[in-house]
């Protein structure tokens, strides 16, 4: 600490009786010395003060052992309080969450993800949601996506590609026994791929990439990107995929593919060395748009082969 020079010459101060005597903060353990602490610490040559100082040192030394344990106890209390505060914040966060999902940050990967509402995905057999299959394959050892397929009466018959997809998506290849999320996939004559979770709060989520976003939020920890440094990058890539899936001509895909290529550069994956949801989205989008697959750069092609090995689509 700083040492302060005494501005005034040392002299006895008569403490007025009309006021409360405050215990010295610095000398809390020393109950019997209500003197002005400032003067006691300063390097004064006053013999009286020096003797007091010695006395204090003595007392401090004597009580040192017990003081340490008390300090430790205090620390424990503080840590406990911090923990409580953290829990409170967490519960506030989950209650304020828009999607009404429980944030499961504290759950380690591979554990049972309970209380996820089962979801219904409506898709047109012409627009097969390959991303779902890709995610199911990637997560097969950590998170079980249990899919059941149905055909809606607005669809007269399924073509070969959809039947093949249905066979793969309904296969039970997960090593995790309990389902992480139950998905009902309905082939339906619908314009958008849409997701419905609760009939009472009927607000569908439209678009394949937004379904990817949802799954990324509730799925294994490693794929939750919201708190990572890449969150913005991933969101942009997902949005590019959304546009890509809406392209009618190969020409309109060009600028989108170019910007994807710029983002990938020489990296192993879009966000560096770690496979992310963005890779899944781009991969499945290209899978659905054969025209896009033809116009890839060499770099992108290499990346695609790499990603396809894990997504299996």
């Amino acid at each position: 600490m700083y040492e302060l020079k005494t501005l005034l010459p040392a002299f006895d101060i008569t403490v007025p009786k009309c006021m409360y005597a405050m215990k010295s903060l610095a000398l809390k353990r020393d109950g019997g010395t209500p003197e002005v602490s400032g003067s006691s610490i300063c390097s004064s040559t006053d013999p009286i003060l020096q003797s007091i100082r010695r006395q204090i040192d003595m007392v401090l030394k004597a009580e040192n052992a017990s003081a340490m344990t008390k300090l430790e106890e205090r620390q424990e209390v503080v840590i406990k309080q911090l923990h409580e505060l953290r829990n409170q914040l967490q519960s506030m966060r989950s209650s304020l969450n828009v999607c009404g999902k429980t944030i499961q940050h504290t759950q380690p990967r591979g554990e049972v993800y309970e209380s996820l509402p089962d979801i219904v995905i409506n898709a047109h057999p012409k627009f097969i949601p390959y991303a779902l299959l890709a995610i199911k394959n990637i997560w097969k050892d950590v998170f079980n996506i249990d899919v059941k397929c149905y055909s809606h009466s607005t669809i007269v018959s399924l073509d070969q590609e959809a039947i093949e997809f249905q066979k793969q998506i309904t296969a039970n290849n997960s090593s995790v026994k309990s389902p992480g999320i139950k998905v009902t996939l309905i082939w339906k004559n619908t314009e958008h791929t849409e997701m419905i979770s609760s009939p009472t709060m009927y607000v569908p989520i439209y678009g394949e990439v937004n379904i990817i976003r949802y799954l990324a939020r509730v799925g294994p920890q490693d794929y939750r990107y919201e708190d990572t440094t890449y969150s913005n990058d991933i969101d942009v890539i997902l949005d590019i995929c959304y546009q890509l899936l809406r392209c009618q001509t190969a020409k309109s895909m060009q600028p989108l593919l170019r910007s994807l290529n710029n983002r990938l550069q020489k990296q192993k994956y879009f966000t560096g060395d770690q496979l992310s949801i963005a890779d899944v989205a781009v991969c499945s989008s290209i899978r659905r748009m054969p025209a896009a697959a033809k116009n890839l750069t060499e770099n992108m092609n290499k990346w695609l082969t790499r990603v396809k090995q894990v997504t299996l689509i």
Binding site: V120, H152, S153, T184, I186, I196, S198, P199
Partner: peptide
């Protein structure tokens, strides 16, 4: 019936 219709459209 209405809930099932809303969710599964059947």
């Amino acid at each position: 019936g209405r809930l099932v219709k809303a969710k599964y459209d059947t």
